[in-house]
Design a protein around this nucleic acid. Structure first.
Length: 209
DNA sequence: ACCGCGATGCCCT
DNA sequence: GGGCATCGCGGTA
C-alpha cells in the first residue's frame, strides 16, 4: 500500500483531518509492526484558532515543530501522564496540525495489548479491547508513541501513514473535545469521525454530516 | 449508563 | 504557580 506523500499534508488541517479518516497509521518498532485505521481526528488551525498551541503565533520550544514543513509528527505530553500524537500540516511558517484521536487496530494487536495492559490479548475484557486505542492518550500507549517521536518525518520508514482499502463511510463533524476555555473556538465543528465506528472516543448525538 | 474526581509533571507566564 | 487537545476508578442508578 502506498505511503502518503508529503504533498498530502501540505493543505489546511480541516482538509487533512477529513482525508486522514480511513488511512492506516503504522509504527515499526522493536522488530514489530503496529498498524491501525484512523477513525477520529481533530483539526487545529494554528494562528487563528484559540484552541491551538500555536494560537496567535505563539512560538515556544514545544510547538516549534508546527512551524516547520508538512508531514512531521508533533507529540506533546499532557496531564503529567499521557502523550498526544499530531500530524503537522501546511507549509513552513504556517503552524497547523491534526490530532489523531482514535484508531481501529489492524495488526500487531498482541503487542498493543502488552503495551497498554501488560496482558495477552485473549485475557482482555471487552471494554479493554475497545480501550486499546479509543482515545489520543490510549493510542499513543498502544503504539509506543512518546516524546522521542516528536519531529519524526512521516515520509520516513519508522512512523508513517498509508492509503487504506477503498471503503465507503459517512463522516460526522462535531465539536472538539477537552477545550472548554477557548471562547468561540470550542464550538467549531472541527472534530471528524467515521460514523458508527466502535473505536471513536466520544460519540456526538446531535451531529452534522 | 453517567458523573465526579484525582493523578502527575511539563510548559509557559 | 496555574493550567492542561486525558484517563481510569469508584460511586450512584
Amino acid at each position: 500500500m502506498g505511503k502518503l506523500p508529503r504533498e498530502f499534508y501540505n493543505k489546511d488541517s480541516l482538509i487533512v483531518a477529513k482525508e486522514l479518516l480511513g488511512k492506516v497509521l503504522v509504527h515499526e518498532v522493536n522488530g514489530q509492526k503496529i498498524f491501525a485505521k484512523i477513525v477520529e481526528t481533530e483539526a487545529y488551525m494554528g494562528v487563528e484558532d484559540k484552541a491551538a498551541h500555536s494560537y496567535g503565533g505563539r512560538r515556544t520550544p514545544r510547538v516549534e515543530i508546527m512551524y516547520g514543513g508538512p508531514g512531521f509528527s508533533y507529540v506533546y505530553f499532557i496531564y503529567g501522564m499521557y502523550y498526544c500524537f499530531n500530524v503537522v500540516t501546511r507549509e513552513e511558517g504556517t503552524p497547523q496540525a491534526v490530532l489523531i484521536r482514535a484508531v481501529e487496530p489492524m495488526g500487531g494487536i498482541e503487542f498493543m495489548a502488552q503495551n497498554r495492559f501488560k496482558k495477552p490479548h485473549h485475557e482482555l475484557k471487552k471494554s479493554q479491547i475497545i480501550g486499546l486505542t479509543n482515545g489520543p492518550g490510549k493510542l499513543c500507549g498502544a503504539f509506543l508513541i512518546d516524546k522521542d517521536l516528536n519531529g519524526e518525518d512521516l515520509c520516513g520508514s519508522k512512523l508513517y501513514i498509508e492509503e487504506g482499502q477503498e471503503e465507503e463511510f459517512a463522516i460526522v463533524s462535531c465539536k472538539r473535545v477537552g477545550i472548554p476555555n477557548t471562547g468561540e473556538a470550542k464550538d467549531y465543528l472541527w472534530r471528524f469521525y467515521i460514523k458508527d465506528n466502535k473505536y471513536v472516543s466520544v460519540k456526538d448525538e446531535k451531529n452534522v454530516h
